Amino acid sequence: MATHRIYTTSFASVYPHYVAKAERKGRTQAEVDRIIRWLTGYTRGELEAQLEHETDFETFFAEAPELNPSRKLITGVVCGIRVEDIEEPLMQEIRYLDKLVDELARGKPMDKILRS
């Protein structure tokens, strides 16, 4: 089975798109970072190191210190696919992140995005 292209794509190459999407809707880079850190357990310094090293998505999620157990509460559609129905674990993690950034850009309150 062929590896999906996103798995070998540098997280650092997609990160600016997450930030730009949020900023176009009046949100901030700090909020994007908070979402990423909530999802993955990275500290601010660890996240910056991952970006600096241009880690690919597969490694980014494999090295995540602690994937948030509440991420399983993330539901909805991203790219026409329900995130809760994605069977491939890595793709599901990537789509969780996409969904959180979408919610941020749509103006959802941070406490709702972070499932608090």
Rank of each mutant, 00 (worst) to 15 (best):
V14W: 06
I6Q: 02
G107P: 02
L97K: 04
R106D: 14
A62F: 14
L67T: 12
I35D: 00
I35Q: 00
D102I: 15
L47K: 03
T9W: 07
T28A: 04
T40R: 00
A62Y: 13
F61L: 06
R44M: 07
I74F: 07
F61Q: 08
Q92E: 09
R82T: 12
A20V: 08
Y96A: 05
Y15N: 02
T59V: 14
L104Y: 06
I6H: 01
Y42S: 08
E31R: 02
R24G: 07
K72W: 11
P16C: 12
A30K: 08
S70C: 10
S13N: 07
E66I: 05
P109Y: 08
G26Q: 12
W38K: 06
L73W: 10
E46W: 01
G80L: 14
R95G: 00
Q92A: 09
S13E: 15
E54Y: 05
E46P: 00
E93I: 02
K21D: 08
G107C: 02
L39E: 13
E48P: 03
V19L: 06
R115I: 08
V14N: 02
E103P: 02
Q50P: 00
L51K: 09
K21S: 14
K99E: 05
K25M: 13
A22T: 11
E52D: 06
A64L: 11
G26P: 00
V32C: 05
M1W: 01
V83C: 03
E31L: 11
T9P: 00
T9E: 13
A12N: 01
K25F: 14
D98F: 15
T9K: 05
L97E: 05
E31V: 10
A22D: 04
D85M: 10
R71H: 13
V78R: 11
D56H: 11
Y18I: 09
S116G: 07
